[in-house]
Design a protein around this nucleic acid. Structure first.
Length: 140
DNA sequence: ATTCTGACTTGCT
DNA sequence: AAGCAAGCCAGAA
């Protein structure tokens, strides 16, 4: 995973307002690069410094093994939840319909900028591949 | 090069 | 609503 990709994912995560969430897949789509698993991987290895609990599964369930910790954040942020969050038999999920982040135009600009920067970085890297001897050239 | 694995998704039962 | 299988993308062994 390139550093540029990691940065882009983390930036998007930081752009998510409190009490709102985005799914791993959503971020992959916004960045127009990689897939849900890549985003999840980035969060697992580099997400400790950002609001990782605002990046969850498409189903509304928080990341595995972090439900309890995430719930505390949701309660303090008043994130819309469904199901019962109390008791030992608590089975809850984030109310995706209500909590899914719906970026404003201004926010979309920021997201686009991040995606554009990532694309630029990717293009730059691809370009650096043609140096060694015997460049195989992949063009058709 | 091949295979395995994962903070994922979707579709089908 | 809950469980299962297959698809998917990339890094690691």
């Amino acid at each position: 995973m390139r550093a540029a990709y990691i940065d882009a994912v983390l930036e998007v995560a930081e752009a998510i307002p409190a009490a709102r969430v985005l799914s791993y897949g959503d971020i992959a789509v916004l960045l127009d690069s990689g897939g849900p698993r890549q985003v999840g991987s980035v969060m697992s290895h580099h997400g400790s410094a950002v609001a990782w609990w605002r990046v969850i599964r498409a189903s509304g369930e928080p990341p595995q093994c972090h439900e309890a910790h995430a719930l505390e954040h949701y309660r303090t942020e008043r994130t819309p939840l469904r199901g019962k969050t109390t008791g030992a038999d608590a089975r809850w999920r984030v109310d995706m319909a209500a909590a899914r982040w719906d970026p404003t135009d201004a926010e979309l600009d920021v997201l686009d900028a991040i995606a554009a920067r990532l694309r630029a970085a990717e293009g730059a890297e691809a370009k650096n591949d043609d140096d060694g001897p015997g460049r195989a050239v992949e063009r058709a």
